[in-house]
């Protein structure tokens, strides 16, 4: 497992995919608070129309940041991880790998682990610059809220990653797995919304709930139901992917 994990991690660095992912987190970590601060000043005004901004605060910056993570960064995660298993299956190298003394489930697990680690590194970097700029421009961030939102976003993105890997194993097509997993992630949240359960249990709610926690408006506890759902579903998907890949 360690041998394969090391190679998967190295591959993400050498093929620059890791830089793209971490870079996306950092860019949105900087842009979100800066945009919220300067947008009211840079938008033109005219006699025909006037845009009225409420006072922008740390909460506005956090909402912008977590929206970007939910919509853009998660899409990047899907694109970068869609080929983690599916895209390699048909290559001559995979044929070599499958004849080596390595458990097939470990190939899936190490691909997941390498991507998951990189997502965590990206989140830490993104959160760090977001916190730095938001604190500088607005102030009033909750340190424990930041840490909790980091864990919440990691859980949500790892679920998205597990779904992508699972669909890659099932469909054996990277592109199809990517599209289905992105749709499936939000469909899962909508399905949970149909049940008589609070919205907080939906993994997609982790992004929106994080902004209130980071800004100190809400308690950390609002993140717990979604994190439990995300962790349980991600673990089940990963186990199913490993088992299916062994059978294939």
């Amino acid at each position: 497992m360690r041998n394969q994990f090391r190679k998967d991690l190295l591959e993400m660095v050498r093929t620059y995919r890791g830089y793209v992912l971490v870079g996306a987190f950092v860019i949105f970590g900087v842009l979100s608070p800066v945009t919220m601060k300067v947008l009211p000043k840079i938008l033109p005004e005219s006699e025909e129309f006037q845009i009225v901004f409420k006072d922008t605060t740390a909460l506005s910056a956090a909402t912008q940041y977590f929206d970007n993570v939910a919509q853009v960064v998660s899409l990047i995660v899907v694109i970068l991880s869609a080929g983690a298993v599916a895209g390699k299956r048909s290559t001559g190298f995979f044929q070599i790998l499958l004849t080596k003394p390595v458990r097939r489930g470990e190939i899936v697990a190490s691909a997941f682990a390498a991507h998951a680690l990189l997502i965590l590194v990206g989140l830490v970097a993104g959160h760090a610059v977001f916190a730095l700029y938001t604190e500088w421009l607005f102030g009033g961030l909750s340190f424990w809220g930041l840490l909790a939102s980091l864990a919440a976003c990691a859980a949500a993105l790892w679920l998205l990653l597990a779904l992508t890997v699972f669909l890659g194993v099932v469909t054996r097509r990277a592109g199809l797995a990517g599209v289905l997993s992105f749709l499936g992630f939000f469909a899962l949240s909508l399905l949970l919304g149909l049940l008589p359960l609070p919205w907080e249990v939906a993994p997609a709610a982790l992004f929106s709930a994080s902004s209130g926690v980071v800004a100190g408006r809400d308690g950390i506890v609002v993140l717990v139901p979604g994190m439990i759902t995300a962790t349980v579903v991600a673990s089940a998907l990963l186990a199913a992917s490993m088992r299916l890949f062994e059978r294939n």
């Binding site: 290559t91 001559g92 190298f93 044929q95 070599i96 004849t99």
Partner: peptide, 8 residues
């Protein structure tokens, strides 16, 4: 094992 078209 060496496949017919080895790739790495």
């Amino acid at each position: 094992y060496v496949p017919d078209v080895p790739s790495f």
